[in-house]
């Protein structure tokens, strides 16, 4: 093999420049297949890096994966180039984080929506069932027909978590409530199919639903549009989507991925970073339902009071919200 010599010449400058870089703080983030600009989950993570950059002036390195092999490759590459903290967005990166964290025990890793039991990994999970529960309650309170809908992206455990919390919340308010559930698809395209989302929403509206909750990334745009066109209500997801159709979006089940990402990078910078599990729920303000000028008129004072009581009860543990368990 003649290759190694020729290669070492090529690699030498890279290694040298890494050594120079190593002293600087260079956090990195790896988005998953949905892509950085999905108006939802990944974008929320991106917002966290934007805030970090604004406050500190430090650039956050980023990469969007297109296939499974690239996850570990990107983590390895970032680690080799001197990133001290690497944030992986999305549950599908768990096995790659595990492999990379073993290879680089001195690099800090964080994974959102996944769990990796290693000392140099922070596993950040959200209690989506809690915010979904409150949104289910809001839906049932706002519904005149007693029928509410749910449109999920892909049928995966995470989305079932949303669906179950929502159903339980609706039934908590109105035990007779009917909840229609649809998943958009079985491939990654399901996160990015507003047309089909709209069709599913129309179908549910046709069956009598007058409030529809989506947990489907970009697909949700179609769901919310369909609800608006029919004069019904919708509930946004992950980011605060109330502004999209003021007066038609009842509320949004927010999941503060941005805060989680910002916090873990900031902690790494300040030397206060700790590995291990982090669970963010209502109590930590990691999840919640949004209330702003766009939906102020939709949430009546009575509804707000009911939701506030439920929220306090969930936080205090008086009201237990069941979590979807993987079979």
């Amino acid at each position: 093999m003649k290759l190694p010599r020729f290669v070492s010449i090529l690699v030498a400058p890279v290694v040298l420049s890494t050594a120079v870089f190593a002293a600087d703080f260079a956090p990195a983030i790896i988005y998953d297949m949905g892509g950085k600009f999905d108006k939802s989950f990944n974008q929320s993570a991106s917002d966290g890096t934007v805030r970090f950059k604004k406050e500190t002036g430090i650039e956050v390195r980023e990469f969007e994966v297109t296939n499974a092999a690239q996850r570990e490759q990107a983590m390895t590459r970032f680690a080799q180039r001197g990133s001290q903290v690497i944030v992986a967005i999305g549950f599908s990166q768990a096995s790659a984080v595990e492999a990379a964290a073993k290879k680089f025990p001195n690099v800090k890793f964080a994974i959102i929506d996944g769990t990796v039991n290693l000392p140099n990994v922070q596993s950040i999970n959200f209690r989506e069932q809690e915010s979904s529960f409150l949104c289910g309650m809001a839906a049932a309170l706002a519904s005149k027909t007693g029928k509410v809908g749910f449109v999920g992206g892909m049928d995966i455990p995470l989305i079932r978590k949303f669906a179950q919390g929502y159903t339980d919340g609706a039934k908590f308010v109105n035990p007779q409530a009917e909840v229609f559930q649809n998943m958009t698809g079985t491939t990654a395209a399901a996160w990015n199919d507003p047309t089909k989302g709209g069709e599913l929403a129309k179908g549910q509206i046709g069956r009598g639903a007058d409030v529809i909750f989506h947990a489907s990334g970009n697909t949700g745009g179609g769901v919310m549009q369909a609800a608006k066109d029919a004069g019904k209500l919708s509930i946004g997801c992950d980011a605060n989507q109330n502004y999209l159709h003021p007066g038609s979006v009842l509320t949004s089940a927010v999941k503060r991925v941005d805060i989680a990402v910002y916090q873990t990078i900031m902690d790494a910078k300040n030397g206060t970073w700790k590995g291990g599990p982090v669970v963010l729920g209502l109590a930590e303000d990691g999840v919640g339902y949004s209330l702003d000028e766009h939906n102020r008129t939709l949430i009546t004072p009575a509804m707000e009071a009911t939701l506030a009581t439920a929220k306090a009860d969930i936080i205090s543990g008086k009201l237990k919200v069941a979590e979807y368990k993987v079979p």
Partner: peptide, 25 residues
């Protein structure tokens, strides 16, 4: 292709998934 995707999603989410994890693997 779509039937394959549906079948595999079903199997991975309901049957083959390693218990206690989010990711359908």
């Amino acid at each position: 292709n779509f039937i394959a995707a549906s079948l595999m999603t079903y199997l991975l989410v309901n049957v083959l998934i390693k218990p206690g994890q989010q990711s359908p693997e």
